[in-house]
Design a binder for these strands. Structure first.
Lengths: 222, 222, 222, 222
DNA sequence: CATGAATGAGCCTTCATTCAT
DNA sequence: CATGAATGAAGGCTCATTCAT
C-alpha cells in the first residue's frame, strides 16, 4: 500500500473518480475497470498506486474523510461563548450540511451510509477518526443542556435520539423520495430541517429532563 | 418465477438460508453457490424454484415481509380506546421489536436496511406494502397528538423525527457496538428504548407544538 | 429407446412440437424443456418415451421421413410410359415441392438441410433411407437421357448438377431473401423454377452430351 | 469489441483455433472453453480481445472473409479481354477453389455454409461484403452470354443455377462422401468439376436461351 | 511510472437427465 | 403412465490481479 500523498495526476484522477463510483455503486458492485476507464488511466495504475481494490477504497475513504473534516469540522461555528442550545443548533446544521450538501462531502456521506449497513474494516477507522469525536462533542452539548447531574446513560440516549433524526435523512433518502416524490433536500430544506430537529430535540431535552415515558405515563394518569 | 407457496423442503431451506446470507452479505456479495451449499441443496434448485438470483431475492423479501407483518403488524396492540400518547408508545415498541428482535424479523430488518442505502426495484415493493402503511399509521397518531389544526408538513417532519430515532438502532447498529462495545439490544433494552423515545418524542411534540426553533430562539432571547 | 409406434397422445404431441422446434432452432439450440412446455407435456415424458434427446431427434427424423416419403415418393407421378425428359420434369417438381412446400415436409426439409451442414449420426440413416434411393432414381433418368454408352462418372456429375440447382433453393433460402428481398417461394414460383431447372438441365444434358468444357473450348477456338 | 488488428500471439491463436472449431462444431456447439484450451490461452482472453463469444465469431468471420477475398477475389484471373464464356470458366474455377481448397478458405466455406442454414446477424455482413459482389459479377457474365435483350429474371435464374451447382459441393459434402465414399476433392477434382459445370452451364445458357421448359416441351411434342 | 496483455478464480445461469411418488 | 422436484455438469462471462515491456 502506497501511502505517499504525492500529488500524482493519475493518482488524483483515480481517487476522484473512485469516490464518485464507490458512492454510486457501493464497494462490491464498483469495478476497478470501470473506475480506471472513467478516470482515463490504465488499469494497472490501481495496483501500482494503491496495491489493490481494498487499498484504493481505504485511500478514498481517508481522502474524503480528511476533506470532510476540513470543510465541516464537528465544532464548525461553535465557540465557547455560545449557549448550549445555540451550540446544538449549530451542530445540527453542520451535521446535516455535511451529510446532504452537494459535492465531495455528500459522496463521503454516501460512503459512510454504506459502511453503516455493510461494515467493513474501514468502519473501525471511520468510527475512530470521524464518528467518535463528533458524537463526543454532541454528548458534551447535550450534557450541558441536561445538566451535570444527569446520568450518563440518559445523555447517551438523548444524543442518539438527536443523531438518529439527522441520519434519517441520509439513510432513508431513497425511501423519502418514494414516500413523498416531490421532496428534495436543497439549502432551504436543510435550514428548515435544522430548525425542526433542534426545536423538537430541545423540547425533548428540556422539559422533564430525566423523566422517561413510564413516569410521564404515571403523571398523565393522575 | 415460481410463486407457489408450496411447502417444499428444498424451497424452504433455500429461503431460510438465503435470508440469512443476504442479510449478512448483501445482495451482490452473496452468491447462489454459497446459499445452496449452506442450504444443502443443488445449485440448479434456485433456477427451478425462483428463476434466478433476483427472483430468489424477491421471494426472500416477500417471505420475510409477510412473516414480519403477521408477527408485528403496524397496529400491533393498538386499539381505538387508547389515548394517542399510548398509541404512540405501543407503536414505537412494536417498531423497535420488529427491527431488533432476534430471528427472522431481525433478518428482515437487515435486509430492509440494505435496501435503504442500496435501493433496488425491491424497495418499491417494500415501500408500497410495508413502509407506507406503517408510516401512514404513525402520521395519524402524531396528527392526533398535535391536533387537527397542525399543518401537514409539521406532522410529517415530526413523524420523521420519531421514525428516525427508531431506525437509528437498525441502521447504526454496527456503529453503536463500536462506540459502546458493551451495548446490546435484548428485550430489556428494547423496553428502555421504547420509554426513552416515547418520552423524548412526546415532549418534542407536545410543548410548543407548531413552534419551530427560530421561534423558540426568539423566546429565549427575550 | 422406445420404438413402439403407439398412438400415445403425449408421444404425438411431442413429435409434432419437436419437429417444428428442431427445424426452427436446430438440434443443439432446441431444448427439451421448451419442447415439452410447448407440447404441454411433462418434461420427464421425453425420457420415458424416447430415452433421451438424441432418441427424440431420431424419432422425429424417422417420423417426418416416413411422412415425406409417403406424401412425396421419389417416383411421385413418374410412370414407365413417360419419356425420360418428362420423368426429369416430374422428378424436379416433386423434389422442389418436397423441399419447399409448407407444412411438415418443409420441416423435414429444414431438418435435412441442417444435417447436411452439421452431420450427425442421423445423416447416415437419411442417406440410406431417403437420399440414396432418390439420387439413384435421378441417375437412372439422367442415364436414360444421356444414353447407355455414357460413362458412369458423367452421369454422376450431371445428376449432381441437377440436384445442386434444386437444393440451392433449400440451402440458400436465407441468402436469396437477402439478395432479393421481394423473392418468395409459393406454388407459382415452384412451377417457374421447375420449368427453368428442367430446361436448363435438359440443354445441359442433351447437347454435346459427354463433351466437357475443355472440348467445347477447343471447338470454340477453331 | 476490440477491432484492432494487432498481431498479438494470443489473439491470432484464438482466431486460428476458433475458425477451425466453429467450422467443425458450429456456433452453438462450439464452446469458448474448448477454443481456449486448444489455443492454449486463458479463457478470459476472449473477453479481453473480442468482448464475448459473438464478438469472437464476428472477428473470425471477418478475418477469413478478408483472407478469402484477398486470396481468391471474385474476379480472380478475369480480365476484360476474355470472352464471356472464358470469364465464366474462370469464375467457376475461382468459386470452387475458394470453397474447397484446403486450409483457411475451406474453413471459411464451412462457416458460410453454416450461416446459410442457420442465419444470424453475421449473414447480413457476409451477404453485403462477400456474397452480393460475387453474385453481381456472375450475373454480369451471364447477362453478357445471354445477350442484352434477355429479361433480368432469366439472368437471375440462370445465375442461380450456376451458383447452385457450385455450392452443392460445399453444402452437401458430408452427403457426397456418404453416397460415394471414395470421392475426394483435391486440385484434380476441382479442375474436373470446373470443366463439367462450365460445360453444363454454357449449354444450358446458350441453346434456346430464353426458352423455358414449357416451350421446349411443346417443341418436343411436335 | 505507465502500459496492454494475460491470468485464474469464480459468478450466474442453463441444460439434459433422473428420482420418488 | 405421468408428474414435480432435484441433480450434476457445463456454459458464457466478469472480476481483480499480475506479468513483461
Amino acid at each position: 500500500m502506497n501511502d505517499k500523498k504525492t500529488a500524482s495526476k493519475t493518482r488524483n484522477a483515480i481517487i476522484e473518480t473512485a469516490g464518485r463510483i464507490f458512492a454510486e455503486e457501493g464497494y462490491s458492485k464498483a469495478t476497478v475497470r470501470d473506475i480506471c476507464r472513467q478516470a482515463g488511466v490504465n488499469i494497472a495504475a490501481i495496483n501500482y498506486h494503491f496495491g489493490d481494490k481494498k487499498g484504493l477504497y481505504l485511500s478514498v475513504l481517508k481522502h474524503y474523510q480528511e476533506i470532510s473534516l476540513k470543510t465541516y469540522p464537528p465544532d464548525l461555528g461553535i465557540n465557547e461563548t455560545q449557549q448550549p442550545e445555540e451550540k446544538l443548533h449549530t451542530y445540527i446544521r453542520s451535521f446535516l450540511t455535511r451529510i446532504m450538501d452537494d459535492g465531495h462531502p455528500a459522496w463521503f456521506g454516501r460512503l459512510m451510509a454504506r459502511e453503516f449497513t455493510q461494515p467493513s474494516w474501514a468502519l473501525d477507522i471511520l468510527v475512530k477518526e470521524t464518528i467518535r469525536p463528533s458524537f463526543q462533542l454532541l454528548t458534551e452539548i447535550v450534557g450541558a443542556i441536561l445538566g451535570k447531574s444527569t446520568k450518563e446513560r440518559v445523555v447517551r440516549l438523548c444524543s442518539m435520539s438527536i443523531v438518529g433524526q439527522c441520519l434519517y435523512f441520509m439513510h432513508s433518502h431513497p425511501v423519502i423520495t418514494r414516500l413523498y416524490p416531490g421532496e428534495s433536500f436543497g439549502r432551504k430544506q436543510i435550514d428548515e430541517l435544522t430548525d425542526h430537529i433542534t426545536g423538537f430535540s430541545l423540547r425533548g431535552l428540556l422539559e422533564g429532563k430525566n423523566k422517561n415515558y413510564s413516569e410521564v405515563k404515571k403523571c398523565k394518569k393522575r
